[in-house]
Design a protein around this nucleic acid. Sequence first.
DNA 1: TCCTTAAGAGTCATATTGACTATAAAGGCT
DNA 2: AGCCTTTATAGTCAATATGACTCTTAAGGA
Lengths: 245, 245
Amino acid sequence: MTTPRAPEGYDPYAFAPFAVTVDLAVLTLREERLHVLLVERGQEPYAGAWALPGGFVLPRESAEAAARRELAEETGLSEATVAGLHLEQLRTYTEPDRDPRMRVVSVAFTALVPDPPEPRGGGDAAQARWIPYGTHGHLAFDHDRILADAHERVGAKLEYTCLATAFCPPEFTLGELRQVYETVWGVELDRPNFRRKVLTTPGFVQAVEGPPRLTGGRGKPAALYRAGEATTLHPPLLRPEGRPA
Amino acid sequence: MTTPRAPEGYDPYAFAPFAVTVDLAVLTLREERLHVLLVERGQEPYAGAWALPGGFVLPRESAEAAARRELAEETGLSEATVAGLHLEQLRTYTEPDRDPRMRVVSVAFTALVPDPPEPRGGGDAAQARWIPYGTHGHLAFDHDRILADAHERVGAKLEYTCLATAFCPPEFTLGELRQVYETVWGVELDRPNFRRKVLTTPGFVQAVEGPPRLTGGRGKPAALYRAGEATTLHPPLLRPEGRPA
DNA sequence: TCCTTAAGAGTCATATTGACTATAAAGGCT
DNA sequence: AGCCTTTATAGTCAATATGACTCTTAAGGA
């Protein structure tokens, strides 16, 4: 009846103080596999377990700023580089017992990184490493859930946005772009059909002028493309089989 | 350098306490228009302005539980009814100055309500009302942004999920379902094509047996349907014109 | 030189959509 | 009663988009 209603009637005793953190699901492609940046915990609880990188939101900082700061710290990338990366709020995790020590609300972000650098080991006893997605056991806290949510979200957004280019360097081949879809979705796509779809979607990619070709390894050299101005795909590029689960 | 890293090294002085609230964008359809549930603020700041309903998250409560509790309080619907409504986390708003008094992080939710009841006036001086979307002026705090984000999200999810049925009562006609799309998107849809799409999408709706028809007003009586078991639409039901903006 | 790998150009059948036409079945009016 | 308006529902047809393939080109490796 007299439960506090916000934003009227701020009573200093009407709310409990919460700690607010950010957790990052940092994804990248290495050697045709999806990898996640994980840190090994040095302290209890969950000492020795792997966890998503993250940290406290500072008193005068937004969650997004905190996430970018942590991302730079954990990956060793410069602030300027990190400023250009795709970083997106995923969801906020608020279960009262998600941290056994105290009430912590965590704003989770998904970050996509092309060309992953080796992470610098954390200043503490913890190490940070790129781990192939799915090969880590159970993560600390509710990070299994966060990571699964991130993977699902990224997979879904590949269908109807141009997100895939965020996994690629500034210039890329259509083969590399197709690899993104195949790796995240775990399926094989038909090359000619994928090519047709990408090239006929206005604004998805734009051809790079100049030396029109580049050879990476085996096979015929491929043309290079840059990300276009479009952000959404209409019509979408749907996964095979239909169901997005 | 020695910025606190979570989840290791919890230092009680390493983080500032935040207040955590929920804000609700409660949407419904009344008389072929999209309406949003707003409360009038009785106190400073923004006294007299309209705002989204919301309130503090209690010490042992998840944000989702807080949102459902607030939703029941503001709409006057029973807890059992509210338990069945579509409630979905939208995004978390964390700008340091979003509340001029103190640091408040707000987890925003979108709720969809069929058959809207008149809201009960709040216990305080504030009143709660259904307002046609777009006819409210500027809302308090960053609630303009939250409401716009909610509208955009709902519009996008209509394309590739079965969300539209959440706006409808348990049994509805295809005309009512089409109204949802037309109202949220602000477009007119071709009746026969819409019908074909809905009926050929497996699991979107299921025909109601028994008295196969019901008359609401003018025109030929329409058959009744219930929401099906499907949650996603494959292929999606895209907005006309392409662009989702 | 031959084999393998991948890019890139096409073809063809099918599936899905968008634009329309037509009929049916109600209520409101005159 | 007779007509007009409104909405539901059944179809048709052409334009698109997609999925499954084939074929050629241009590398690298053995």
